[in-house]
Structure formats: C-alpha cells, structure tokens
Amino acid sequence: MIPAEFDYTAPASLEEAISALRQGGEDAKLLAGGHSLLPLMKLRLAAPSLLVDLRRVPGLAGVARGNGTWRIGALTPHAVLEHTPELGVVSAAAATIADPQVRNRGTIGGSLVHGDPASDLPAVMMACEASVTVQGPSGQRTIPALELFQGYMETALAADEVLTEVRMPVLDGWGFGYEKFNRRSEDWAMVAVSAVVNARDGTCEDVRVGLTNMGSVPLRAPAVEEALRGKQLDAESIAAAAEQAAEGTDPPADLNASAEYKRHLARVLCRRALEKAAGLSS
C-alpha cells in the first residue's frame, strides 16, 4: 500500500506532457484518474519513475456531438458518460463501473489505455466501432478500437503517446443492451456482453456484440453477429444466435469462474443483451 519513490509533474499543455513522457523514458507514465495506476503502484506491481499528470492539460474532458459523431475527451470521467443517456450502450456500461467514487475519478482514456479485458468500456468501444485519437512526438494518428487492444493490458499506443479523444459514430435508432455479470455490484465483470442492434421492420439490419473478460483482450462475437444479421429479430433467432457467443473464445479461469462457466455466462448474457437491444425485454 506504499508506492515506490517516483517523480511527479503536471504540465499545462499536451506538448509539454508528451515531451515529459519522452524525457522520462520507458518508466514514465501518464496519470489520469489514477484509479487503475495508483492501486498497481501501491501494491508495487508498477513502479514508474515519473508520473505525468494530465489534469492541467486543457481541452481533454467533455462530450460533444456533431456530424454524426460523438467526440469524447480522454479525461471525461465515467460519471459524465453515465449521466449522458444519449450515449446509449456507453452510458449503460459506464453506470455499472464500481461505485460513485470510482466513476467520478476514473476516465475513459485511462480505462482504454489500461487495456484490462475485464474493464467495461473497451469491449463497448469495439461494439460501437469507435476510434481513438492519439498524439505523439511525431504528430497525431487515429486507431480504430478494433485495433487498439493488442494483448493482455497492452495497447497500440507507444509509451510517449497520449490518447486525447474517442470518436464514435452516433447510433441513433439503434437498440442496445449491456449485461454485466458480477458477484457484487462494485466488482469487475466476470463476463459482460454489450449489444447494439439496428433493426428495420423487425429485421436485423446490423448488429455488433462486444465481449468483456472472455479472453486476454476485449472481443467481438462475430459468429453471433453473422447468425443474426438479416434475420427476423425475435426471441428464437436471438436465442439461436446467442448460442454462438462463446465461439472461439478461450477465457481465463479463476477461483470463482471456470472457463466453461464463463462461456455459459457469455451465452446467457448475450441473449439477454440482444433481447434488450431488440426491445423484447427491459
């Protein structure tokens, strides 16, 4: 519970932050809400030599909508997403993160870059086909959420890059469902499933399903999507499609959930999320 020694800086601009990261080298880390990084440091599972706190960098927080796109600043706390219901499945997922303290401090940028497959937002971003804007020493680039998560707690960002913004297509008219399964309300997901569905006249035009904690990275469930796309959206087709939810997954077992149980949960939660998205349940 006592972190190792580290230096701390809170630069006032993005440029300064990036150069501080560069000068700090491999062991420098950005600090956003601190609700993933600081626990690791206190347990001495992480020991960065320098923390570059983003809190004074202007323009990194807030939610805006324009041209069919949501723009969410990296420092936007989960609580703001939770209280922006127009964000649909993102809002629903944010509302399930831990408790109010964590939601007030934790940020979307931190959650995505931390890259924990058990976190709620990463798979949701994949289901929403969002992308992130990152800024580094040699400029800005865009990474689709589908390419962001490279391995267990490993993302496509370089050590000296800052995630500045999340961009996400507006999904007006799409139905959504977020089903998170945990033992206690404040726990991380044992498994969670996010579903967004675009239906016309009862037919599923498009559907995307995200899987949380079903592998070393957040996943999509392509077999479910294929099974449902173009089908009549009813309980039967949903149940049949949801049976594919664990297809190709290799979830890690832990004390409270075997791989088999997690696969079972994925199927159940997938069906429930799709039923919600299709308006068959509330």
């Binding site: 347990l43 206690r184 309300s185 404040e186 726990d187 004390l255």
Partner: peptide, 16 residues
C-alpha cells in the same frame, strides 16, 4: 494466498 485483497476477498456491501 489467492484471496489477498478486497478485490478477491468479497465482502458484502450495502448494495447486495
């Protein structure tokens, strides 16, 4: 010891 933090040692909270 597998359950060495409050993440793994699940204490019931008011929400449950």
């Amino acid at each position: 010891l597998v359950t060495g933090t409050f993440v793994d040692y699940a204490l019931a909270t008011a929400a449950e």
